[in-house]
Design a protein around this nucleic acid. Structure first.
Length: 224
DNA sequence: TGATGATCATAA
DNA sequence: TTATGATCATCA
């Protein structure tokens, strides 16, 4: 088996590709794709995600849009433990720290990214050697009305804090389903934001992340 | 021990 | 520089 050379034409084709790699290990997938496998993820944090993108035919590279633009589908690998519970939060996108005229929840990057997600769970316990971690069966998810309401509440609260110049007061404790944490190579990376007087300030870039309780609920609904 | 805050690699 | 892919690792 080899990675596909083209993106999937339909959601069904994407799901079919998921079924073909389900149950295989990261070692299997790496060797079949002629990709070197790192000893651990300490210096290769995005490696599983990149490998699975390759195997599902996602457009490589960094673009502020979905992984499968024609299908409107975003791919998210998610590390899980033996109880099928998430081991990590899920990064969604950067949090704009300057006013974005006209942007509401309906038109936000968060909502756009999460409209339809292909969740691809994989074994993530650090005691399992990376090469031996198995991939589960990926599945498509669209937020329910309840999901959307939860996310909207958090997004609006967090966005308001940012627009009022309180970005420095935001911690990861804000938000029930969606929260904000730093997102940068290191602490010296700075970007523009506003303080309470509307003055330009420099602060660490932030990103939106899905809490584990939220993604755990998604997985529970899928796997029972 | 888990969540928060910090960090690592890479592409364009 | 800012985006992608995320997980690491410290500390309450």
């Amino acid at each position: 088996m080899q990675p596909p050379r083209t993106p999937p034409s339909t959601p069904d084709e994407l799901l079919e590709r998921c079924h073909q790699i389900a149950g295989l290990t990261l070692g299997d997938l790496a060797s079949m794709a002629n990709v070197a496998i790192p000893d651990n993820l300490q210096r290769h944090k995005g490696w599983p995600g990149m490998l699975l993108e390759l195997w599902l035919g996602a457009t490589a590279g960094s673009k502020p849009q979905q992984d499968f633009p024609e299908l409107g589908i975003e791919l998210k690998t998610i590390p899980i433990d033996a109880a099928l519970k998430p081991l990590e939060t899920t990064y969604v996108c950067f949090a704009p720290l300057l006013p974005q005229p006209g942007v509401t929840w309906q038109t936000s990057s968060v909502r756009n990214k999460l409209q339809m997600v292909l969740w691809l769970p994989l074994e993530g316990d650090r005691q399992i050697p990376l090469a031996q971690r198995r991939v589960a069966t990926g599945f498509l998810w669209t937020p329910t009305a309840d999901d959307d309401r939860l996310l909207q509440q958090d997004w609006e609260e967090l966005t308001e804090l940012i627009l009022l110049g309180n970005v420095e007061a935001i911690t990861a404790r804000h938000g029930n389903a969606l929260h904000i944490r730093p997102k940068a190579a290191n602490g010296s990376v700075l970007t523009d934001a506003l303080d309470e007087e509307g003055n330009r300030i420099k602060t660490r870039p932030r990103g939106f992340y899905l809490r584990k309780t939220f993604t755990q609920n998604i997985l529970a609904r899928e796997f029972g």
